[in-house]
């Protein structure tokens, strides 16, 4: 279980994430929605360790991880896919995923064996590539893939980390309509397993409605609504946040 308590980060006087307390249970998919600039990605950065919290706590399975560096959090089971595609551009598609598989194997400090002799890592990486239907592009250089395939590779890297908590930051952004189902099927399959915590930042409301067990609304850094999809989407406060009838939005 992942939990944040009064999680806050200030840039100067501005609180980009302001006292957010929220617990994410195993086996549930929680969507985090809110207008642009609401602090969704910043909230993700605080959880996965890309930004240090000003105050508040993050706990993973009861362990306080607030001050741990990002690599340590990943090794503890926190997996993150990024909003802007964030790959190893001049390495092959397969190598991008193999590197993620290698983290868990603990072979990163192996200086004297040949990478190619570790077949099991390569085979597992290939399996993850197949899961996002990229197996036939395994030898392609990541930077040469079309945008949609790069998004899929991003998800394959996340799968390869085999985390307990999956964090998707707009996984379908910029994808063509016919490619979106591949990603949604993968997310649905992870949810099906029932033992993983899934956090999803997404703008497409139909995606959010169909996948989520729960929706959390952020607005100006604050958590303003939390509940079942049907309740939250139709609530006044969400309309207010999205339509901007309160002061200072924009």
């Amino acid at each position: 279980m992942l939990e944040t308590k009064d999680l806050t980060i200030r840039f100067g006087g501005h609180a980009a994430v302001d006292g957010v307390s929220c617990a994410f249970e195993k086996g549930t998919l929680t969507s985090i929605v809110g207008p642009n600039g609401a602090g969704k990605t910043t909230y993700f950065n605080l959880i996965s360790g890309q930004l240090p919290a000003t105050s508040g706590r993050v706990t993973l399975n009861g362990q306080d991880i607030t001050t741990l560096a990002a690599p340590r959090r990943t090794r503890l089971g926190l997996g993150r896919a990024f909003q802007l595609t964030n790959l190893f551009p001049n390495l092959s598609t397969l190598e991008n995923v193999r590197l993620a598989v290698q983290v868990k194997s603990g072979k990163g400090y192996d200086l004297f064996s040949r990478t190619l002799t570790h077949r099991e890592l390569i085979d597992r990486a290939m399996a993850h590539l197949s899961a996002v239907s990229l197996a036939d592009r395994a030898q392609a250089i990541a930077a040469t893939l079309p945008h949609g395939d790069q998004r899929k590779l991003e998800v394959a890297i996340l799968l390869a980390l085999e985390p307990d908590v999956f964090m998707f930051d707009e996984p379908t952004a910029g994808m063509s309509v016919d490619e979106v189902p591949t990603i949604l099927d993968i997310i649905a399959a992870i949810k099906q397993r029932g033992d993983k915590t899934i956090l999803l930042v997404e703008h497409k409301m139909d995606v959010v409605r169909s996948l989520s067990d729960r929706i959390v609304v952020l607005h100006q850094g604050k958590l303003v609504a939390d509940g079942k999809p049907a309740e939250v989407i139709n609530s006044d406060i969400v309309r207010e946040a999205y339509l901007g009838t309160t002061a200072g939005n924009g």
Binding site: S48, Q50, A69, A70, P71, T74, R75, R80, F82, N86, L87, F88, P89, N90, L91, E95, R98, L99, A100, Q102, V103, K104, G108, T115, I157, L161
Partner: peptide, 17 residues
């Protein structure tokens, strides 16, 4: 292979652990 990953994208190398 990790060294090359760091050369390519140190931020992501950190993020995957």
């Amino acid at each position: 292979s990790v060294l090359m990953a760091i050369r390519e994208n140190p931020f992501r190398a950190e993020a995957i652990g």
